[in-house]
Design a protein around this nucleic acid. Sequence first.
DNA 1: TACTTAGTTTAGTAAATACTAAACGTTCAA
DNA 2: TTGAACGTTTAGTATTTACTAAACTAAGTA
Lengths: 174, 174
Amino acid sequence: MARSLQKIKKEFTQGLSQISRFWGFPKGMGAIFAVLYLSPTALSLDEIVRETGLTKGAVSTEIRALARMGLVHRSSRLGDRKDYYEAETDFYAAIRSILKERQNTEFDRAVRSVRETLEKLEENWVENDEWQFVYERVQALQEFFDAIDSLTRAIIRLERLGITNVKRILSVLK
Amino acid sequence: MARSLQKIKKEFTQGLSQISRFWGFPKGMGAIFAVLYLSPTALSLDEIVRETGLTKGAVSTEIRALARMGLVHRSSRLGDRKDYYEAETDFYAAIRSILKERQNTEFDRAVRSVRETLEKLEENWVENDEWQFVYERVQALQEFFDAIDSLTRAIIRLERLGITNVKRILSVLK
DNA sequence: TACTTAGTTTAGTAAATACTAAACGTTCAA
DNA sequence: TTGAACGTTTAGTATTTACTAAACTAAGTA
């Protein structure tokens, strides 16, 4: 007899939860996304609560994070106070918006601190070997971060990342 | 009067700790790397303990993880039982080995679970709209993961990623 | 107006993770 | 063969993070 769709869905959801955790997001987030991703219709918050087994509070906060990252979209219907959510299906678009979101957070702050180190070294310059050595190392790291930064910016700038662009990158890397 | 190098180093170390945490690694890891990265000479475990303020146990386990990722290198000297560690300075090489390392861990397992979902759907095929819908969605995700996978594999295959290749990618993305 | 139904916030708990302290196993040296 | 110097492992603690339960706010309805 055919394995029930319900069961397969559940297994898929668990897989996405794992992936979510792997990327440093709560596993509940992965579960919420999975449920929405496999649903042909947009779901209300309570429906998501039912499907995932999480509480309203958790779903409420985590779905907001998902929306901020552009992985789900919220919509409302006329004459219905409920909000409805559906999954973004264009993953390339999602990557771009995740990058965008991350760009302006802790990461940027931390990277800036490396640049500040470099500036401090310049301002308080002392002519000796160790100072020179440290300066060169910090500078090299700075250059690396700058490269990563221009890469992410370039990706964000694209209207679509898409499989086509991935293929183009692949051909260059050959 | 010039700000002391010691203090600048400490600030830099804190910055890297933050970055480390951002990428989902323990902040101690970032600190250890920072200390090694700013040291002109290879350091022993106890020296790292002294510089970071962590305990021997923590440094021991975390530096092993760093070595596995190719971010630090361990070496030993003749007639000296201590191990010495130094930072990898080629970040592109480091990225490659981090990708390599990650490739064979939880992530791969999780991604495989998506493929398994797809197979289960095929094996137990039932002709109805929802089944069809779910199948298409899971398939789309699978294709996306495959694209990401070939990207990382391509990067791993390169002898050097380097700034040159980054620039080539950038030019394609224009 | 009070009552429902929705989503959010908050205070507290559970679970996961990073870390410490100390015991342990090895290796070398006296 | 005992002891010291290293690095590792382990058991327990502290910190962080994810989540629950329940109070709360807002908006529509009777």
